[in-house]
């Protein structure tokens, strides 16, 4: 771990103001020399590995009072970004009205980590790609742009098949982001250039030719809240996570599914996939394939096939295409069969 200045911020403004000094060539928030510290479960982990080397760390945990509220409004749910994963997962109203959110969070990490990690930081957690995390590998375009990608021909069982490029196949590791993706959430930001709101779907960037740029956040931009509309599909939603062991493991494949049914026909389907893609992956082709149909083995499988039509496997992760399809199929059938309270 490299030496850094440590400061604690008492409010958004003072936290953001620390970036006034920043004159370096930081290209996005993830690579900025100043980093916000909330739960620390990604940042401290990666600082110990010498992957992240901020020169200044701003502890924003004191912002929990201001930015940590969970509010229900007429038009939906507002989740303060400093709410901890466990607070949201354990919230009875969220469990009932936005089950995909509560389930995605409950299935993530461990009880301790869920107590620590703020949901704003959680969506920014970084890939588990071993070649990214171990700095003794020279080739990682995400860590050292232009150096190559050791994963392409390496051990890549856990790597992505969707949203990949010839520069990077690192999987986005999280679960909660898929729930926000499926529910069309909006992200409230505050930063050196003021406040703005963006669709959650535009927060993460596919690797393409610049895998080092992971998000659309600029240095100093702070996620302050997520807004989720009270859409009709929110109640009939679930998160399915498939993994080698029963708990405390990243997904091999996951599906966040939300359905609005007219009797049993799909009025609207919202689908996001995890464990198989480089970013939280919205499966619009699958959604379109379901529209107007009754969900059964055949239609669910057809939608799943559509979701993975463009998948690109590597040596050890080809199974993720079949697994991803089956995971989505299972999730759709399960969601269609849900008893939904009115």
């Amino acid at each position: 771990m490299r030496p850094f200045e440590f400061e604690r911020a008492s409010d958004n403004q003072s936290a953001i103001a620390t970036f006034n000094d920043l004159r370096s060539a930081d290209i996005d928030a993830v690579n900025a020399q100043i980093q916000y510290l909330a739960g620390g479960t990604t940042l401290i982990d990666l600082m110990k590995l010498d992957v992240m080397k901020p020169t200044k760390v701003i502890d924003i945990n004191a912002l929990q009072q201001a930015n940590g509220n969970i509010e229900f409004k007429n038009n939906g749910l507002r989740l303060g970004a400093m709410a901890r994963m466990s607070q949201v997962a354990d919230h009875a109203d969220i469990q009932q009205n936005y089950p995909v959110i509560a389930q995605a969070l409950r299935l993530a990490a461990s009880a301790q980590i869920r107590n620590m990690a703020a949901i704003g930081g959680n969506v920014l957690q970084r890939t588990r790609c071993t070649y990214f995390r171990d700095t003794s590998y020279a080739n990682c375009n995400k860590r050292a742009p232009g150096s190559g990608c050791a994963a392409l021909e390496g051990v890549n069982r856990s790597h992505a098949v969707l949203g990949v490029s010839d520069q990077c196949i690192a999987t986005y590791p999280g679960d909660f982001a898929q729930a926000l993706m499926a529910l069309d959430a909006q992200v409230e930001l505050d930063g050196p250039r003021g406040k703005r709101t963006i669709p959650f779907a535009s927060l993460h960037k596919k690797p393409d030719q610049t895998p080092n740029i992971e998000t659309s956040l600029t240095p100093g931009e702070l996620i302050t809240a997520f807004n989720v509309a009270a859409a009709p599909y929110a109640k009939r939603s679930l998160f399915l996570k498939v993994r080698d062991r029963e708990s405390y493991e990243f997904a091999l494949a996951s599906a966040a599914v939300a359905l609005d049914l007219d009797n049993s026909n799909v009025r609207q389907a919202r689908i996001a996939l995890g464990g198989v893609a480089t970013v939280p992956w919205r499966a619009k082709e699958a959604e379109a394939a379901l529209a107007g149909n009754k969900i059964d083995d055949v239609t669910a499988k057809r939608a799943a096939d559509a979701a993975f039509a463009d998948a690109k496997p590597r040596e050890h992760n080809a199974f993720k295409i079949e697994l991803g399809k089956r995971t989505l199929t299972r999730a759709l059938l399960q969601a269609a069969a849900m008893e939904v309270p009115t």
């Binding site: 604690r8 003072s14 103001a17 620390t18 000094d21 701003i58 004191a62």
Partner: peptide, 10 residues
């Protein structure tokens, strides 16, 4: 502890 007063010059 950074506070509002520090906004201009941390």
């Amino acid at each position: 502890l950074l506070d509002r007063g520090a906004r201009a010059a941390p």
